[in-house]
């Protein structure tokens, strides 16, 4: 069992910031490996019920990545970006851009994973920045918004 996540949302000049903290009952090395090793990542990446048929993921600074999550009905949700910080076993950071037809399908956002050892357990802090604000969220075309909401509903 893992502890419930704590969530914070702020706004800065670049857009909205989402922060989620979660404590895992696993060592920092194991949690980092689950993020850095593509074979391990593919085993959990994607919400429950979804598979990860495309997992082009090899963390190296400046390297690109792309993954596609597939729903049970076969619909794919692809996201990709570039690694911006790779510092095992405490930090992994990358840009994050959903592929899609809507005007915000190509919004370049950024994700940082910070890990901290807590006596054999691991605290993970996920910081997703440069998220579109409410105004741009309102402007999302139906395609992008609804596919993202579909995805959220499967969780």
């Amino acid at each position: 069992m893992s502890q419930a996540a704590t969530i914070e949302i702020e706004r800065n000049d670049e857009g909205c910031v989402l922060e989620i903290e979660h404590v895992f009952k696993a060592t920092i090395e194991d949690v980092y490996a689950a993020w850095s090793d593509p074979k391990r990542l593919a085993k959990w990446w994607g919400p429950q019920g979804m598979t990860c048929p495309v997992c082009d993921w090899d963390p190296a600074p400046g390297g690109t990545w792309r993954t596609c999550m597939q729903s049970p009905t076969g619909k794919q949700y692809c996201v990709g970006g570039k690694f911006t910080d790779v510092a095992p076993p405490t930090r992994l950071a990358f840009t994050w851009m959903w592929e899609g037809e809507g005007p915000n399908g190509g919004v370049d956002t950024h994700v940082t994973i910070d890990l901290q050892d807590l006596d054999g357990m691991t605290r993970l802090k996920l910081t997703h920045t440069r998220l579109p604000d409410e105004e741009s969220a309102k402007n999302h075309s139906d395609g992008w918004t609804s596919s993202f909401i579909d995805l959220a509903e499967i969780l």
Binding site: I7, L18, I20, A34, W45, Q48, K138, A152, L155
Partner: peptide, 29 residues
């Protein structure tokens, strides 16, 4: 509504992802 719609999509997504990661790590343990 506008705020919660916006937040819930991203929040649910990452909560789901971290939930999957937690289950994976438990299985590995």
């Amino acid at each position: 509504q506008a705020a919660s719609d916006w937040i819930s999509t991203y929040r649910n997504f990452w909560e789901g992802q971290l939930g999957s990661l937690a289950r994976y790590l438990e299985t590995e343990q």
